[in-house]
Amino acid sequence: MITAIERLKIRLAVSVELSGKPAKVSEVIRGFQATEADGVWHLYRGMKQIDDPRERAIIFGHCLEEESHADAFVKAYKHYGGRVFTPTHYERKALYAGDEPIWKTFAFVHVGEVDATQRFRILSQELPPGALKDCLSNVVSDEEGHVDLTYEMLKRLGATDSAIRSEVRWVRVRRLWERWLRTGKRLIDNLANISLSIVYYVFGALLFGAARRRLARGFVTYDNNKMKHL
């Protein structure tokens, strides 16, 4: 059911939002690149808390693959982007507080892998031939492997099946909540766009002369040579 909805959403996005719009496609690719790079960062962080070199070596391989995915998206970007690629920066945040067991981080990563696999697979099927389709088709086979790899890692780290199930449920709720928050933010953003545009036309008409005079001054004259406090 979820897959059907996801497919419908992606199909709609491909035919309406992305079709014939390389700039939009390049933004989507930037998002994918950022997600991959963010994934690597969480893996590096998770790895620091693991002692067993065998497990560390598995995560090392995983880091390497995700980093190569990020690179693959940068390459794909070049087929669509009008401007040189600049990565999107997130404020990096640890997924769990320091005292939570490390396997929980991998539960989060696992859910990310499941979702990425699904989204990338559908998208690669729905997209017309092109660099992004090729890139996604390559990446998706790795992502499928990562779903199993992260599940195995959860077991290696001592998580029981029922603990994994309950954590995965919790992660799903958290991700849903985050998605709602993003939707809410977009809504507020749109409202801000409208109200600030009104402010701009009202005050801009009154203030642009003063602003131009201020810019023409050439030198900074206010007292700027001291330590300041709020």
């Binding site: 600030l196 545009s197 801009g204 203030l207 642009f208 602003a211 810019l215």
Partner: peptide
């Protein structure tokens, strides 16, 4: 920042916003 976006009025709505 405020002055610079106001100074380019009316061509700087996006920058201002």
């Amino acid at each position: 920042v405020l002055c610079s976006s106001m100074a380019a009025f009316p061509d700087s709505r996006r920058e201002f916003v």
